[in-house]
Design a binder for these strands. Sequence first.
RNA 1: GCGGGUGUGGUGAAAUUGGUAGACACGCUAGACUUAGGAUCUAGUGCCGCAAGGCUUGGGGGUUCGAGUCCCUCCACCCGCACCA
Length: 960
Amino acid sequence: MDYNPREIENKWKAYWKEHEVYKVENPASGESEKPKFYVLDMFPYPSGAGLHVGHPLGYIASDIFSRYKRMSGFNVLHPMGFDAFGLPAEQYALETGIHPAKSTSENMERYRTQLDNLGFSFDWSREVQTCNPKYYKWTQWIFLQLFDHYYDNQENKSKPITDLVQHFEQNGNAGIDAANSQEGSFTAEEWNAMSKQDQEEVLMNYRLAYRKIGYVNWCEELGTVLANDQVKDGVSERGGYPVIQKAMKQWYLRITAYAERLLNDLEEIEWTDALKTIQSNWIGRSEGASMFFDIVGSDEKIEIFTTRPDTIFGATYMVLAPEHDLVEQLTTADQKQAVDDYISYVKAKSEVERQAEKEVTGAFIGAYAINPFTNEQIPIWIGEYVLKDYGTGAIMAVPSDDERDQRFAKKFGLQIIDVVDKSKYPGATLSDKVGVIINSGFMNGMEVPEAITAACQKAEEMGIGKMHINYKLRDANFGRQRYWGEPFPVIYDADGLVHGLPLEELPLMLPDTDDFKPTKGGRSPLARLEDWTNLSDGRSRETDTMPAVAGSSWYYLRYMDPDNEDAFAGQNAVNYWQDVDLYVGGSEHAVAHLMYARFWHKFLHDKGLVPTNEPFKKLINQGMIQGVIEFIYLDKNSPEDARRFVSAEIAAQEPDGDFAKIPVHIDYVTDYGSDKSYLNLAGIKQFIDWRPDYANASFESATGTYKSGVFDSPGGAADITFVTLSEVGKMSKSKFNVINPDDVIEQYGADCFRMYEMFLGPIEQSKPWDTKGISGVSSFLRKFWGLFFDAQGTFSVSEEPASKEEMKILHTAIKKVTTDIERFSFNTCVSAFMVATNDLRKLNCNKRAVLDPMVRLVAPFAPHAAEELWLRLGGMDGMKTVQEAGFPQFDEKYLVEDSITYPISINGKKRALADFPADASKEDLERDALALEEMQKWLEGKTVRKVIVVPKRMINIVVG
RNA sequence: GCGGGUGUGGUGAAAUUGGUAGACACGCUAGACUUAGGAUCUAGUGCCGCAAGGCUUGGGGGUUCGAGUCCCUCCACCCGCACCA
């Protein structure tokens, strides 16, 4: 029988479904005969374009690993679900009027079908959808827990806010060391005398979920708040309208409370160093001093943070962030115009643009501060390189020892005083913390580290500052002015006080609407639903919704116990599954999702609700599979009613600026993805059918010109070769280059698709999609299948014992595949299968002793074919699936060699190969190698200075 | 700007601890079989060279008996930067 993937795969997909082969049970408390293993994929956002060939890369890898672990005797949890709230569905709703719930649910269904088509071993009975009220009930509940807790720095854990209130009632905020944004101190009497509102204001500065003013990208023209990636060059991506930074009161999460733990605990998890570095840079811990500078003629003080307090004698001016609270108050009348102009210049820029700005910009505000160590008056400036949200939003500028300060000082003619003598450290850069302090009073002669301590001590004695650890990590903005997200489960009373809803009232359902446009002032569409928003007695609901990161911060816990109605997950389930053993996903989630999930997990751990300190023990990143975008050149100067397109070779001869690149649907392109990709006449016709506005356009190429149905070729060519431009880029609906795995599977089968994606290269590497090599994998599968059948196509397996050579081929493959799965090197596993199959074919081997373990070995990779072959081998006896058969174990005894082929080098260059006995001594090897006939011409007339022999590896003869 | 990553044949790549560079595939060349081939099989295929041999892992330098692998330096490309998910 020929290998017919379609038939086999449909049969087994149906069988798996019917027999619930991949359903996983939570063992009753205490008993678990098998060790647990939790393999998780980052769940997808179900986009309208459907699953493309890039998505499955990680899923295939994790599925192979899950199947391998299952066959190795583990109880494997391998679930899947959907990150179903998010902006694209809402954007789509705005354009089409189709409700996000509807489009999302359709998209999820489509994804599910596509995922099933790939033969994954997901336990779908555990599916979670973040937009399902049964799920977001618990997202809301966790949010309320955050709202009801503060972080105690002494005990290093979060505690109920009621504890804090009790403390305030008795002691004010003295003696409390908590993560907070409270300014100043108050006594118990002061606390008790405060109004409810004032008390709530204070508590907001401690809660882990709290409200404060934040800045958003506001586009007046569109009447909406924009995401950073919807803003390009200070204008909206859609429409190109101006965007400014607008202040809005919003919900935040106090992730900074966990900064130290998020940083330190990176040590206990197996993530790549690159990923850990990204997280640790994101957290951005720096040690230094916070200090207060007095202001001439004002009672206000400017608080700064510096990592270099030792250079304070060189602080000749200060720079505030343009948004700093004191700017307005301190600006003098004659500088007002300049300052206002500068602020409006800054407001039009995004933070990334501000930091990327190479030119130094700033404005003097007219006021002066006093350097507390030199008592000199120093001017106060504002500049975009100082960020409002980093540190205190103000710096003491030391132009002698900070590069940016130096450029600023040089541009604006500010004083520069050298305070660090680096002559003892040749090659040290400005930012290296080395040197001897000069021009600095009591610190003169000290080395930098010593001076840092001394400066902190002095500042503390003077009562103007202290040692301080600063983090770049900021509290996360947790509010979105959008419809399609979790509603905040809170109610504002008539006095504006926030009340969390009790558990019985959860979930707070997202109300239905058909109008997804933002409400005036940038408020969410929910604000338009007055019946929902406004309650009796002047009470109202929050109209912001939660960001997509909310639902994804804890979904991995829900899979453990997805139907629990009394808790986010039952304690039995959580204590059994513990944490994720292997997490596979894209590195684009390196900070946001992975940081918030770690934060929520630690918070739940503090509450005693999860047993582990970290959610994801091991994590691997899969690379992206990019698409190729095909463009054709449109002459921008051609008239509207007679557009002129030119083939790439013609465009190359004319100035670049004359052409616009129009993306073409890749289905129309011949030789898609190659440098020679082109449209033929049929392709051009398809293009015109698709874009009828170009019906009258001309298409010029070296082979001739096509216009209005006529192809005129001077050379008499029968068809046009209209060359397109191929560029590697994201696979996206808007680029018309999405490749649906279903189409590939239709042609080659899911087993082939799975193996081919693995065969493409290392899992973590990005690469453009290319089907060039798929035939190699396809023919491998046919050859492998062929091992089990005779020339007449009859299933035929021999019971004869296997030869030594055959056993060696088998065990070489088992060893290679086992070690390579363990190190996530799936591409080399596929090679190993090919090598084994080629070798067995040469020996015409059809022996059960070899083929039975081979089937179990390929089962994780090609599960459908493996099931069919396993059934035919008679292995199904008493089992539902080959997954229940054990994974083959290799035995070194089949791998021992009698002789070893040694490369023999002269001065490190290979000159000969020779076989020597495996147990030959170093001395024998050296003697025999030197005696080899083919070596004599290299040794002639030379002195052998040294012979290096590495047994079982190589021999190197050094001559001179 | 800050941070992360990647550079090896015509192409995707392999080389697990510093020890035979290019496994395994694609493509290409030649041949066999066939009515036919975008099927299958066999052989060859890093580059230069008739050969002997030389060169070769982005460029340059270093350490070493030996470097794709370690160190220094330069270059190119890709990704992320807090409201895309």
